Amino acid sequence: MKKYLTAIIVLPLFLLALGCTPRYEEPVDGYKPSSVDDDFPIPESAALMQTIPEPENPNIDNGAKYEVKGIGGEQGLATPKRYFQEIQAEGWTQLEEKQMGHVHFFQKDDTVIALEVREDSLTVYEMIKDAKF
């Protein structure tokens, strides 16, 4: 009987603690300029994996892919809200109506940046002027 009583008390507490545990913790360690555009911030921990000097998409001028541990959550489905707030604090406006799945668009003056957020990686693309997207 004592085992059942303990299980009845401990199990709900365990489930409550499990339910309150965050599933996605955004990496926050400061920001630095991206190699694509000096005005577009990326997380300080971002490690350049690949430069994309001549993308196959004719609307993209150039790009770079970065490894960022913990960004994007599982399968890249979590929006990095604090990071997006930092981008906007730097003067970029998110073009929410242009979002396509994992790809988010930001504009500052005449420059448009496409930001692809995946699990543990970011890809930053600079769009050509008057790009069709």
Score class of each variant (00 low, 15 high):
E44M: 15
Y83G: 11
F40N: 08
D39R: 15
A78T: 12
V117K: 02
L77G: 05
G30I: 10
K129R: 09
I128L: 08
Q94Y: 01
A64H: 08
E86R: 15
D38F: 08
Q94K: 14
E54Q: 11
K98P: 00
P55K: 08
K108L: 04
K65W: 05
I42M: 03
Y125D: 10
R82V: 15
R118H: 07
Y83L: 13
L11G: 01
C20V: 01
H104R: 07
E96H: 09
M100G: 05
G91M: 11
G76M: 09
E56Y: 06
E90V: 01
D37W: 08
T111R: 03
E97P: 00
A17N: 07
Q85H: 13
Q94R: 15
K132F: 00
V117S: 02
G101T: 09
P58F: 11
P43G: 13
I87C: 08
A78W: 06
P27T: 04
I52T: 14
A114M: 06
D110L: 10
Y66V: 07
V68K: 02
H102P: 04
L16R: 01
F105L: 11
E116P: 00
V10H: 00
Q75E: 13
P33A: 09
E119G: 02
K132N: 14
L95G: 09
L18R: 01
T93L: 05
E97V: 06
E44L: 14
A46N: 08
S34G: 03
V112M: 06
F106A: 03
V36Y: 09
P41E: 10
G101Y: 12
H104A: 02
I87V: 14
E67D: 10
F84I: 07
A131E: 03
G63A: 07
V103F: 08
P58V: 03
P12K: 04
G91Y: 11
E126K: 04
R82H: 15
E26L: 10
L115Y: 08
K132Y: 09
F40I: 05
G19I: 04
P43E: 05
K108V: 08
S45E: 12
V117Y: 02
F14C: 03
K129L: 04
L16Q: 00
Y31L: 06
Q88H: 03
L122K: 01
P53N: 10
K65C: 06
N59W: 06
Y66M: 06
S34N: 05
Q88I: 00
K32G: 06
Q50F: 05
Y24F: 14
G91R: 03
G72Y: 11
T21Y: 14
Y24E: 03
G70V: 15
D37N: 15
R118V: 07
E44F: 13
A78C: 14
L95H: 04
N57W: 08
V103D: 10
V28M: 10
K129Y: 12
V10D: 02
K132G: 01
A17I: 11
Q75Y: 13
P27D: 02
F106S: 06
L11E: 02
D37R: 02
L122D: 05
E25K: 13
F84R: 06
Q99D: 12
E25G: 14
T21H: 07
P27N: 07
P22S: 12
G91P: 10
Y83P: 11
V112N: 01
I71H: 01
H102S: 13
A78H: 12
Q107N: 11
R82F: 14
Y125H: 13
A46P: 05
E126H: 01
Y24T: 03
F105V: 03
L122T: 03
E54N: 14
R82P: 08
E97G: 05
K32I: 12
